[in-house]
């Protein structure tokens, strides 16, 4: 940081280094690719909507209450993650830690519920190999769940780095990028909630 870059005191730390700025822009490009990745999984799920074969239908197994709890946990975690970034921009490291740890706890709660949901389905006779429909279901929801798992691990490691090195232009760019990733997981979940669960229940009802 010995460069002659002059910054207004109000410029957020994550935008103060050239690397930070480029990494944030690059991460948005990565998120565009993630949208394309998830769109192929949504296409597969929707195309295979009625291919339940001899297995159970989603109408028989989907339970609204569990899905709503998962939705609420992830949406709230996205909100608390936003607050954490707000605190970081106020240079409040303690606030950043408190809200990020709440975010991770809510994310872990979401993951726990999802694992419980998967185990329940398998016990009721719907595993990944039961029918084309359930393959599509477990792949899309599982891919999202894997992203949440990676997000929790990644943010935990970044928080450890912030605890050791403090809030610098380097560490805060990392925190900001991981927050983009976490919000993006909620964006994907909005579409899973709508296209996988609500659509599945509507189409198999009629």
């Amino acid at each position: 940081m010995a460069h002659a870059e002059v910054h207004d005191h109000n410029t957020p730390l994550e935008y103060q280094s050239e690397t930070g700025r480029l990494n944030i822009l690059g991460f948005w490009v990565f998120l565009g690719a993630e949208i394309a990745l998830f769109s192929t999984l949504f296409a597969t799920y929707l195309v295979l909507m009625y291919r339940t074969g001899d297995g159970p239908t989603p109408h028989e197994l989907f339970e609204l209450k569990g899905v709503l709890i998962e939705t609420f946990l992830l949406l709230t975690s996205s909100f608390t993650c936003g607050i954490a970034i707000h605190e970081m921009r106020r240079r409040n490291r303690k606030g950043l830690f408190i809200w990020m740890i709440i975010t991770l706890a809510l994310g872990a709660g979401f993951l726990g519920y999802e694992i419980y949901e998967f185990v329940t389905y398998v016990h009721e006779g719907a595993a990944i190999g039961t029918s084309a429909f359930w393959s599509g279901f477990f792949v899309i929801v599982g891919t999202h769940g894997l992203h949440v798992t990676m997000g929790i691990a990644w943010i935990t490691l970044i928080l450890i780095q912030v605890a050791r090195r403090g809030l610098t232009p380097q560490t805060s760019a990392k925190v900001f990028i991981s927050s983009l990733y976490w919000h993006f997981l909620d964006v994907v979940w909005i579409f899973i909630f709508t296209a996988v669960y609500l659509t599945g229940m509507v189409l198999h009802n009629g």
């Binding site: 822009l25 948005w28 565009g32 394309a36 949504f42 296409a43 189409l203």
Partner: peptide, 30 residues
């Protein structure tokens, strides 16, 4: 950078809609 980010995400959304709506339409399900 704000415009680049927004344009990139809008283009990704366009790609996603084409992939999903196109697949559902072509495969005749739904």
């Amino acid at each position: 950078t704000g415009n680049t980010q927004t344009g990139n995400i809008l283009f990704a959304a366009f790609v996603a809609i084409v992939i999903v709506a196109g697949s559902v339409w072509v495969m005749g399900a739904g």
